[in-house]
Design a protein around this nucleic acid. Structure first.
Ligand SMILES: [Zn+2]
Ligand SMILES: [Zn+2]
Ligand SMILES: [Zn+2]
Ligand SMILES: [Zn+2]
Lengths: 137, 137
DNA sequence: CTTGACCTTGAACTCAACTCTAAGGTTTAT
DNA sequence: ATAAACCTTAGAGTTGAGTTCAAGGTCAAG
């Protein structure tokens, strides 16, 4: 049985994060010590690893809750549900990437055109582009 | 002179957003009507357009504040400052894109391997990957 | 027997960019 | 004259993922 600080170090998260996940219903301590300390067993540690890995591939805590619900009772859930969550996250991620790529292209163009010199910004092409109706943003 | 609702419609933002921008120091109404209504002139409208365009290329409201400070007194600011803000934002954007691309690749791999069928999730490869230490995440 | 490292709680705070609510005043059209 | 469509304010709520705080209890070592 491990105390919260031990788990935190193992998984490189803060104890606050572990308590927060508990409040969010993601990970309960297995038992409490007589003094009220949270005590985690190996299966709790494994569950926390699952959470950390799911976060590392881009799932939100809410997604992870759903994944855990399925994982805990696999037999009454289907591959389809899991894949659907994954594809949904994939779609969201791609949309966000598209949006950021637009930003990236606009910002590159703006940066390329500006001389970046020490002289006054009176004729700065970046400001001009943002002012003009014809800013090629 | 335009009332807030007029500006809001023109620029496709909410009146709340305009009031919020005012609180944030981004855009003051030119004057107030006797009844206390905000009245904007064309230069205020232009400034709001600037803000909207800057947002559209990915600048945050805080960035935009800095840009406006420069824009309002171009003569005492340099191209270098403007370009620096732009490059900084570009770097941030690229970093975020990199992060999301990692998510995207991991999620694609997970999704590809899962059959997505209606049968139970007992052997779902996605769950397995997230459980196993060897999850190729 | 006390110091320091650990643990507990609830509540408030953070960031960003709004959005919403309540309770009211103004303008315009019919 | 009254209803619809505006506008005002201060302040609270939202989302997501935590972090920080205050005030205190516990445990091992020296
Ligand atoms: Zn220049
Ligand atoms: Zn420039
Ligand atoms: Zn399957
Ligand atoms: Zn599957």
């Amino acid at each position: 049985m491990y105390k919260i600080g031990h788990i935190a170090k193992q998984l490189n998260v803060s104890t606050d994060t572990l308590r927060y996940y508990e409040r969010q219903g993601l990970l309960q301590a297995s038992v409490r010590s007589p003094a009220g300390y949270r005590l985690y067993d190996d299966s709790a540690l494994e569950q926390m690893r699952f959470i950390v890995r799911a976060k590392a591939v881009g799932f939100s805590l809410r997604d992870i809750q759903e994944l855990l619900t399925i994982k805990i009772d696999k037999h009454n859930h289907s591959c389809e549900e899991v894949k659907s969550l994954t594809l949904q996250k994939l779609t969201q991620t791609r949309q966000r990437i598209e949006e950021l790529l637009k930003f990236e292209r606009s910002l590159s163009v703006l940066a390329e055109r500006c001389c970046g010199g020490e002289e006054s910004a009176d004729d700065c092409s970046i400001l001009t582009a943002l002012e003009d109706v014809d800013g090629s943003a």
